[in-house]
């Protein structure tokens, strides 16, 4: 085991899989010579050459769309879209084309395409770089939406994504790229999709989160423990497929739940979590399920983003209300 940052874990997955499977190719803006704006692909061009690592024209639509064609040709493309907020320019290729190619062709063709893309706030980026629009892709049947929160998951889930015969949107928490460190095994392992994980045990309330919001929930749980409130933290890890059983069981064990995400409140994936709990765990709930999310506004200018992105204080407040509700 080695201690790695998120970005190192992602790079190690890419390197190992490109070495293991010569069909795997990487494409995206600035991923070759520069090694990616966050260096996720650093060294790949040198190691695997210009026939496997491609600096692409600045055009998200054709990065995604040509990845589908590469997959049909027999290659296994891993595309990078520089920021999730830039996938707006590629949404028409990802949702109605890549996601449903298996369906439209009645199984003749599948899109073994991985699209890696960082997202999330708190690092003072310019407009559109931070947008948390993962829920938009949950409404694209055929696509899997994967949200690793730590280096172990990042490597194991990226290997799983590249080998998945179906397309995967792999969202990377950019705030955690260098901040979040953890133990990562050398060599090959995968983390299966659709299995949530309890990252902290607690009996009073369950905090449900994914990606960078997991660390936020864990910090809030530490603060709450000082007040005598024991919070369980559940990392969903993947939104599609959703681990309904794991979610329900984690919430039933505490009877109370707060969902935390960086996306705007209305129709964020938290709404789906709440609806699922209402259907599957209603009689175990002792209080309404609360949501801590960004407001329904565009992502603000960087200097005031701390008032927008959910904070430890807001999570702690929501938990206090949920725990005291009769």
């Amino acid at each position: 085991m080695a201690t790695m940052t998120m970005i190192e874990a992602i790079r190690s997955a890419l390197r190992e899989e490109m070495a293991r499977d010569e069909r795997v190719v990487a494409l995206g803006q600035d991923i070759g010579q520069l090694g990616g704006v966050f260096r996720a692909t650093d060294g790949l061009l040198k190691e695997f050459g210009a026939d496997r690592v491609f600096d692409m024209p600045l055009a998200e639509g054709v990065i995604a769309g040509s990845a589908l064609g590469l997959a049909v040709s027999g290659l296994v493309p891993v595309a990078e879209i520089q920021f999730l907020g830039f996938t707006h320019q590629a949404f028409h290729q990802i949702a109605p084309q890549i996601a449903r190619y298996r369906y439209r062709s009645q199984g003749r063709y599948n899109a073994q395409v991985t699209i890696r893309t960082p997202f999330g706030g708190g690092v003072r980026t310019p407009e559109l770089h931070s947008d948390a629009i993962e829920a938009q892709f949950v409404q694209a049947p055929g696509l899997k939406v994967v949200m690793p929160s730590n280096p172990y998951d990042a490597k194991g889930m990226l290997l799983e994504a590249i080998r998945d015969p179906d397309p995967v949107l792999f969202c990377e928490p950019l705030r955690g790229y260098r901040l979040v460190k953890g133990e990562v095994p050398e060599g090959d392992y995968t983390v299966p999709f659709g299995q949530s994980r309890v990252t902290r045990e607690g009996s009073d309330v369950t905090l449900v989160a994914w990606s960078a919001a997991v660390q936020l929930a864990e910090r809030a749980a530490e603060r709450l423990a000082e007040e005598g409130i024991e919070a369980k933290v559940l990392d969903l890890r993947t939104l599609v497929p959703l681990d309904v059983e794991g979610l329900v069981s984690a919430v039933e064990s505490t009877g109370r739940c707060v969902v935390v995400h960086e996306a705007p409140l209305t129709a964020g994936f938290g709404a789906e979590v709440v609806a699922t709990l209402q259907e599957e765990a209603f009689y175990s709930l002792e209080a309404p399920v609360a949501r801590v999310a960004a407001p329904d506004t565009p992502y603000p200018i960087a200097s005031i983003e701390d008032y927008y992105v959910p904070s430890v204080e807001r999570v702690v407040d929501a938990v206090r209300r949920t725990v005291s509700a009769k």
Partner: peptide, 25 residues
């Protein structure tokens, strides 16, 4: 033959990726 395309021009990036991928192989 790839599936018929209703979203006009969406097939063109697929064609490019397919041709480019075949050439690489």
């Amino acid at each position: 033959v790839l599936p018929l395309q209703i979203a006009l021009a969406a097939q063109l990036p697929h064609a490019v990726g397919l041709g480019w991928g075949l050439k690489l192989q």
